[in-house]
Structures are given as structure tokens and as C-alpha cells.
Design a binder for these strands. Structure first.
Lengths: 112, 112
DNA sequence: GCTAGCTATATCGTTATCTGATATATCCAA
DNA sequence: TTGGATATATCAGATAACGATATAGCTAGC
């Protein structure tokens, strides 16, 4: 289990990287991140949807409703070009932060 | 400049790693992290002291007042054994998170 | 045709967190 | 004696986080 601040810091970048795999709807995203992290990362709806709405409002993703045969309609989210840029910026930021920690913590950090 | 959530997530681990260098007082810590990060990380007093107090309350650091010849007294903080453990745990958590991102983002992440 | 459970999105209201502004005080130089 | 650097500390308004709750479609079993 990751600490609360780390989970908060990782929410948006992880979300964007998931959407790079292709269009996804909220419920699916929750299952996907759980599977990818072997159950280590568990997102809840109240954490997910506000972020998706914000990303949509800022033009980082677009959303389209699609009917489903086995349940309620689904809202599919798609990364926009701006979203890809945002992801790259998150990745750059992450790299920079990692470099800083490596500087402070020594080379053993890279040995992951 | 790091994003707000990332700054929040990094505050405690960075603080502990700074204190591993030796005893430090608050004002000094602010200068030190700024210098180490080449001005990228700028902590404020209102961010710093609440955390230091919390770390002291949980036994992660101890504090002693020391007189100063060129200004007000200084409160020096020292990492306890429990603090070193906490730092190691942060480092482990960081490694795990880094591994997860590497899995999602590809090998280019390690090339920092 | 009822109900239980899964699927699916969404928001509310309380709690927690964050941080700019402010307070207090010492020292030194102009 | 005024201003700036040093030094710690807290408050109060703003922001963010999230468990609980609402709504609703679909399917299976009875």
C-alpha cells in the first residue's frame, strides 16, 4: 500500500498513462489499475470521477457515451493531443524528481 | 517546479534524507533543500514547521535548542533510529512506485 | 416478477490538509 | 533607529480528499 500523498501525486499521471493504452471508461479504469498493480492500487469512484471531469474540463481528455449490452451506458474517455503532452510533462517531472532523490539517496535507488 | 501533489508527497521523505546528513534547524533546512535542488524546491516556514512538529511528536526526530551568535536561538532536529527506519520505508515505497511507473511507462524512465 | 448482485456514473457533506499572512524576537549594519 | 537577515511558530481561510449515498440498467435464480 502506498502512502496517501503518494497515491494523490500519482493519480493523474497514472490515469493518463492508462488512457494511452486506448479509450476507457471509469469502471474499467478502476479494474485496470488494480490488475496492473497486482492489487496495490485501488481507486474508488469518488476519487476517479472528479479527476476525469477535471481532465475533461481542461481539454486533456474527451468523453463519449456508448451503450452497453450488459449494464448501464459507459462514458469512454480518450486522450487528446494536449493530454499526451500533459503525460509527457508528468513523465519529465517524475524523471526530475527521481534524479533529485537519487542525488540525495545514492545510487542504490536505481537498482530497482 | 514540481507540481503541488508531488511536492506534498516528497516533503517528508526529502526532509528525512536531509537530516541523515546531520542535525539541522528549520531555517537551514529551507536553504539546504533549495541549494540541493538548484532552486527547484522552495519550502516555506508554514510548510516546514508543522511537519517537523509532527515528526517530533511521532518520535521520528528529536529536537534541542541551541544558542546562536548571530540571531535567535536555533532548534536543531536529529533523526532517531525510528526516523532512519521511516526513511528506509519511504525509500522502499519510492522504489516500488518507481517500478510500477517503469512498468507502465516503459524502460525510458530508467534513463535518467 | 422479485430480489440480489454486478455494472456504471455521479455528487454530497464532512473531514483533512495546505499555505499565505501574521506575530514575535534577536542580531547587525547603515 | 530603521531595515534586513535570521529564526521559530501559529492561525484562519481556502482547497482538496473521500466515504457514504443516490440512481439506474442488466442478469440470474427462485
Amino acid at each position: 500500500m502506498f502512502s496517501k500523498p503518494l497515491v494523490a501525486a500519482s493519480l493523474e499521471p497514472l490515469m493518463l498513462s492508462l488512457l494511452r493504452e486506448g479509450d476507457m471508461y471509469g469502471y474499467q479504469i478502476i479494474q485496470r489499475i488494480k490488475a496492473l498493480s497486482d492489487g496495490q492500487i485501488v481507486w474508488t469512484a469518488s476519487k476517479l470521477y472528479p479527476l476525469l471531469h477535471k481532465l475533461e474540463a481542461t481539454g486533456v481528455v474527451t468523453a463519449v457515451w456508448q451503450p452497453s449490452k450488459n449494464g448501464p451506458d459507459r462514458k469512454y474517455y480518450r486522450l487528446t493531443p494536449k493530454g499526451r503532452q500533459a503525460l509527457q510533462q508528468h513523465q519529465r517531472e517524475w524523471s526530475d524528481y527521481h534524479a533529485l532523490l537519487a542525488k540525495l539517496w545514492g545510487p542504490d535507488l536505481s537498482a530497482t
